[in-house]
Design a protein around this nucleic acid. Structure first.
Length: 640
RNA sequence: GCGCCCGUAGCUCAGCUGGAUAGAGCGACGGCCUCCGGAGCCGUAGGUCAGAGGUUCGAAUCCUCUCGGGCGCACCA
C-alpha cells in the first residue's frame, strides 16, 4: 500500500521536476518522524537546492503549487527545511489495505526461479545453535521471496563424501570397532552419540598423527562408494540427516530437495566439470612446490584475490580425492542448468522430501535450472564462495557468476557464562565469548535448546491455564518455544556475531517471539468477544471506507500506517538480504498495538463509529503482523 | 602482512541509499489488573554515537587515518 503510493507519487514528482527545471531526478520517499507532519515525505527539494542554487523551501513551494492531488491523498504541505509531505485519506487508505493481501507480491510475472541453498549441516553429528542461525535465515529468505511472488526452490546440501563424515566412520570402524548392524541398532539420539564420537576421533588423531592415514583411506572409500566404509558412511549419513530434518521440522523448516554430494561424484558431475576446467586451462597439475601432485586453480591473475599469500586453491588433492570447492563448482553449475547432466530423484517418504539419487522415480519435479542462486553460508566461508564464482567465470559463465549470491551472515559464538554452563573452562584472558567447535564437541545442541524452551513454555502456559489437556499444553508449548528460538535468530543483524547466551535465548518477555504471539492472541480475543456480543468479528473494506475521517486519532492512524509498510519491509529485507528487517517490523507493530490496546477499548466503546475505527486499526495491524509472523515461522497459538 | 565484519545508555542491540528532537529490550527505581488476558502498559534515571581529521547547508550514517575486538587467507568445510 505505502509501496505503491511511493512509486506513484515519486513518478509524478519526477515529471514535475523535469517539466519545471529540466532536471532528471529520482525522488526518494521517506516516512516523516511524526504522523502530524504527514504520511510520506519527499526531501527532493533539499537535494535539488545545490544544483539550482536556491533555497530548498522555495523549490518545495514551487513544486507543490498547482499540484492536483489524486484521489486518496488528503493534503500536500511543505514542512521543515523543504520537505514535500503528503497525507492520505485515512478511511479510504485503511479500506484499501484490508482489501489487499497483508504481504502483497511485487515480483514481475514470469520471474525466474530462485534456488535457495541452506542448512547444509555435515551429516556426522547433531545440529547446534550455529546451524540454527543458518536454517532460520534460509527459511525466512525462502518464505519472504515466495510471498513476494518469486518461484523458489529450497535445497539442502548433504556433504556425505567429505572429511567430517569420514572421521565419524573412522570412529565407528577403527577407534571403537562397531559392526554395521550395531550402528544400525544404536538407540536415538544417534546424532548425539556421533557428536561425542567425533570429538573423540579428533583427540585420537592428535595422540598419533599417523592415524590420519585411516582418514585418507576412508575418504577414498567414500568417493568410490564401495566397500564397508562407504556402506557405513551411507548408513550414518542417512540416520543423521533424518535427525537433522526432525530437528528442523520442530521449527517448521522444510526443504524441496536434498542434494547429496555422493551423487555429484557418482553421476560424474564432478568429472564433467573438471574436464571443462582442464580444457579451459582453469586448473593445472602442480609438478613441485607445496602443492606438488595437486590440481590447483590459479587465482593470482584474478584481481579480487590479489594479496593472498598463496593464490592457488587445491581442487584435487595429491592423493586423488576432491576438495569441497571442486564439488561445489559442479553443483553450482548444475543449479543453473549449465552442467549438461541431471540427477535422478527419489522421494524420502518418512521425511516428505525429495533427494537426489543415482536411479530414481519416474516423473520427479523439475529441479534446478535457476535464474538466480542464493547460498546461505556463514561469512567465514566467503573466500570459498568467491572461488566457486571464479570457477564459473573461468568456465565462461559470467552471467551465472553474477547471479550466484553468497548470503553471508556472521557466526554464532557462546557467551562465557553459557560456555561455563557447558563445562567449558573459560579463562579471563579468553575474552567474552567462546567459538563453537564440532571437532572439540563444544556447542549448544539445537534439540537440547528446544527441549528447554518447550519445558519453560509448558510451565508458563500451565501457570495461566489450569486443567488444560496434556496434548494441547504440549502443542502450545512447542509453538511458543519455536517462536522464541526463531525470533531470537531472525532479529539479529546478519553482519553481527551472535554471542549466544542461554538465559537470553530463554526469555519470553520484551523483544521476543512470544511477545509477538501474545499480540496475535490479544487481537484474536477482541474478535472473539465482539462475536460473542453479537457484533461482526471482522469489518470489510466497504465498512472501513465509510468511517468518518475525523474519528481517526493520530495514534490509531499510525498503526495503520505501520501495517501498510509490511510489504515494503519484506521487499527490502529480501533485496538487501538484511532479513532482520522482517523481525524488526513485526516487533514494531506488536509494540505499537500493545500500547494502543490499553488506551483504545473496542468492545466497551459505546459509540459504534469510534468502535469501528478502532476495530479497523487493530484489524489491519493483526493482518500485517500475522503475515510477517508467517514468514518468520511464528504460529498463532490458540491461547498462551 | 593482506582482506572482511563490529565499536551507539550499566548489559544486548535498532537507527533504512546523509535530513526533522539519537530510539528499543533487559537490568534499576516508581506506578497500573471491580475495565477486550499483567508473557502487557505508563513513568523516572541513564549517551563525548571508540578517537582524530575531512566532505556537506546538514554526519551516528559518506571518505581517510588511529585505537580496540572478532573472523578469514588448509591437500577442513
Amino acid at each position: 500500500m505505502l509501496f505503491t503510493w511511493k512509486q506513484t507519487l515519486a513518478a509524478e514528482l519526477a515529471g514535475r521536476i523535469r517539466d519545471r527545471y529540466g532536471i532528471e531526478h529520482r525522488p526518494v520517499a521517506e516516512v516523516p518522524p511524526r504522523r502530524a507532519l504527514g504520511d510520506l515525505a519527499f526531501p527532493a527539494p533539499l537535494h535539488l537546492a545545490r544544483e539550482l542554487r536556491r533555497p530548498p523551501r522555495q523549490i518545495a513551494e514551487e513544486l507543490a503549487g498547482s499540484w492536483e492531488l489524486p484521489a486518496g491523498v488528503r493534503a500536500l504541505r511543505v514542512e521543515g527545511a523543504g520537505y514535500l509531505n503528503f497525507s492520505f485519506a485515512r478511511s479510504a487508505f485503511a479500506a484499501g489495505l484490508l482489501a489487499a493481501p497483508p504481504i502483497a507480491p511485487t515480483a514481475p510475472a514470469g520471474a525466474p526461479k530462485i534456488v535457495v541453498e541452506h542448512t547444509n549441516i555435515n551429516p556426522n553429528k547433531a545440529a547446534h545453535v550455529g546451524h540454527l542461525r543458518n536454517a532460520v535465515l534460509g527459511d525466512l529468505l525462502g518464505r519472504s521471496l515466495r510471498a513476494l511472488g518469486h518461484p523458489v526452490e529450497i535445497q539442502n546440501y548433504i556433504d556425505d563424501t567429505g572429511v567430517q563424515l569420514a572421521d565419524v566412520v573412522v570412529g565407528f570402524l577403527d577407534l571403537e570397532p562397531t559392526s554395521l548392524a550395531e550402528i544400525r541398532a544404536l538407540p536415538e539420539p544417534f546424532d548425539y552419540h556421533c557428536w561425542d564420537l567425533y570429538a573423540r576421533v579428533g583427540r585420537w588423531y592428535e595422540e598419533d598423527p599417523a592415524r590420519l592415514e585411516r582418514r585418507r583411506e576412508t575418504l577414498h572409500a567414500l568417493e568410490a562408494g564401495t566397500g564397508e566404509r562407504a556402506q557405513a558412511a551411507r548408513l550414518i549419513a542417512r540416520r543423521i540427516v533424518g535427525r537433522h530434518l526432525g530437528t528442523m521440522a520442530r521449527l517448521g523448516i522444510g526443504y524441496d530437495l536434498l542434494t547429496r554430494e555422493s551423487d555429484i561424484l557418482g553421476l560424474h558431475f564432478f568429472d564433467h566439470a573438471f574436464q571443462q576446467l582442464r580444457e579451459r586451462g582453469a586448473v593445472r597439475l602442480e609438478a613441485d612446490g607445496k602443492n606438488a601432485g595437486c590440481w590447483v586453480m590459479p587465482l593470482a591473475d584474478v584481481a579480487e584475490f590479489a594479496g593472498l599469500e598463496d593464490p592457488d586453491k587445491v581442487i584435487v588433492r595429491s592423493d586423488g580425492t576432491i576438495t569441497y570447492v571442486g564439488k561445489d563448482i559442479a553443483y553450482q553449475l548444475w543449479k543453473f542448468g549449465l552442467l549438461g547432466k541431471e540427477f535422478a530423484y527419489r522421494y524420502w517418504m518418512e521425511q516428505g522430501v525429495w533427494e537426489t539419487a543415482a536411479e530414481g522415480a519416474e516423473n520427479p519435479p523439475a529441479f534446478g535450472h535457476a535464474g538466480r542462486v542464493i547460498n546461505v553460508i556463514d561469512a567465514r566461508q566467503s573466500y570459498l564462495q568467491r572461488i566457486v564464482r571464479a570457477g564459473l567465470e573461468a568456465l565462461g559463465h559470467p552471467e551465472a557468476a553474477a547471479n550466484s549470491v553468497h548470503f553471508a551472515y556472521e557466526m554464532v559464538s557462546l557467551s562465557a557464562a553459557t560456555a561455563r554452563q557447558l563445562g567449558q573452562a573459560v579463562g579471563e584472558e579468553e575474552g567474552r565469548s567462546v567459538e563453537m567447535s564440532g571437532r572439540k564437541g563444544i556447542g549448544v545442541k539445537a534439540d537440547d535448546l528446544l527441549d528447554r524452551l518447550v519445558e519453560k513454555a509448558r510451565e508458563q502456559v500451565a501457570q495461566r491455564h489450569r486443567d488444560l489437556p496434556r496434548p494441547e499444553l504440549q502443542r502450545l508449548a512447542e509453538q511458543i518455544a519455536a517462536a522464541a528460538l526463531r525470533f531470537f535468530m531472525a532479529k539479529a543483524t546478519t553482519s553481527r556475531v551472535i554471542v549466544f547466551d542461554l538465559d537470553e535465548a530463554l526469555a519470553f518477555e520484551g523483544e521476543t517471539g512470544p511477545y509477538l504471539q501474545y499480540s496475535l492472541v490479544r487481537g484474536r480475543n477482541i474478535q472473539r468477544k465482539l462475536a460473542a456480543a453479537g457484533l461482526p468479528a471482522e469489518l470489510d473494506p466497504a465498512a472501513a471506507a465509510a468511517l468518518p475521517e475525523e474519528l481517526w486519532s493520530d495514534d490509531l492512524w499510525e498503526l495503520v500506517h505501520l501495517a501498510a509498510g509490511a510489504t515494503e519491509a519484506v521487499e527490502k529485507a529480501a533485496s538487501t538480504l538484511e532479513l532482520s528487517l522482517v523481525a524488526r517490523h513485526a516487533l514494531e507493530l506488536a509494540q505499537r498495538f500493545h500500547a494502543l490496546y490499553h488506551h483504545h477499548p473496542v468492545l466497551h466503546e459505546e459509540d459504534p463509529a469510534l468502535r469501528a475505527v478502532r476495530q479497523t486499526a487493530f484489524q489491519t495491524a493483526m493482518r500485517a503482523l500475522g503475515g510477517l509472523c508467517e514468514l518468520l515461522g511464528i504460529e498463532e497459538p490458540e491461547r498462551m
